[in-house]
Simulated scan of single mutants.
Amino acid sequence: MTTDVEPGPHAGEPKQHEQGLAQRLNWLRAGVLGANDGIVSTAGIVVGVAGATTDRAAIVVAGVAGLVAGAMSMAAGEYVSVSTQRDSEQALLRQEARELRDDPEDELAELAGLYVERGLDDELALEVARQLTAKDALAAHAEVELGIDPDELTSPWHAAGASMVAFTLGALLPLLTITLVPAGARLWVTVAAVAVALALTGFSSARLGHAPPGRAVVRNVAGGLLAMAVTYAVGSAVGTGSGL
């Protein structure tokens, strides 16, 4: 995609705005997927336990344990993943800073060449490169060459917290449903509530990813229903075998 860049203090802003929007959409999509994981995994646990016993306390304990374990796992995984990404980005920025310090002329020519590849003529590309280098050489190279904004590196703690919250919110739906609904209807009400929630998360993730929502919804709901069916069957078999 070619972005027209005019010389001046605001050169490069359209691309920065696009990157900012893309980052926000990625965060939103990650939140939807985290909530989806919470719905499916917790629904599988509580429905599986419900297949083994009608004891509300046992179902609640299993559901809460699954919610806490899943939320912590999601947070830890996101923290490790984003920390690794951040470490890599910082290493690239340090390397770029060394190159700018040791060979600024070649780096200026490289930046101008990158703008030529984006569609600017040689003279304009060089002028844009000079102005951006004078303003913030590292930011200019990081944005165009590496696709990194040095001022907006993702925080591992923020990512971990967001992932934990999204998973918890998703997990609360099946947990509260199967806990609050009377025993005679709890299974089917929970399955219906989970199916609706998965349809919504499937639709949302597809729209955020610019994909056709129909197939995404079907896959999401079918996967969730399959998970609950399997865990219910296992719970029923275990419960029967153990005399519950």
Score class of each variant (00 low, 15 high):
Ala58Leu: 12
Arg186Lys: 04
Leu176Trp: 07
Arg94His: 14
Glu6Pro: 02
Ala109Gly: 00
Leu226Lys: 06
Leu93Glu: 03
Gly119Met: 06
Ser155Gly: 11
Gln90His: 08
Ala159Lys: 11
Ala171Val: 03
Ala227Arg: 05
Leu200Gly: 09
Ala43Tyr: 07
Gly77Trp: 11
Arg24Ser: 01
Ala237Lys: 10
Gly77Met: 09
Asp4Cys: 03
Lys15Thr: 10
Val234Asn: 02
Val47Met: 02
Ala222Leu: 14
Gly34Asp: 12
Ala75Asn: 08
Gly77Tyr: 07
Thr201Pro: 13
Gly44Ile: 01
Leu153Val: 06
Asp4Met: 10
Asp4Ser: 11
Thr84Cys: 05
Leu120Glu: 03
Met72Asn: 04
Arg98Leu: 14
Ala112Glu: 00
Ala58Arg: 05
Ser205Gly: 08
Ala222Pro: 06
Thr2Tyr: 10
Leu21Tyr: 08
Gly12Asn: 09
Lys15Glu: 15
Val116Ala: 10
Asp55Val: 01
Gly12Ala: 11
Glu127Val: 10
Leu208Ile: 13
Leu114Glu: 01
Leu198Lys: 03
Ala65Glu: 00
Arg130Tyr: 02
Thr240Gln: 13
Gly243Trp: 09
Gly38Gln: 08
Leu173Ser: 04
Leu25Asp: 10
Ala142Thr: 09
Gly119Cys: 03
Ala52Ser: 01
Gln90Phe: 03
Ala125Lys: 05
Met74Lys: 01
Ala183Ile: 03
Leu21Arg: 14
Asp149Cys: 06
Gln85Phe: 00
Ala71Tyr: 04
Val234Gly: 05
Thr154Ser: 14
Asn26Asp: 14
Leu175Val: 04
Ala166Gly: 05
Ile45Leu: 15
Pro7Met: 08
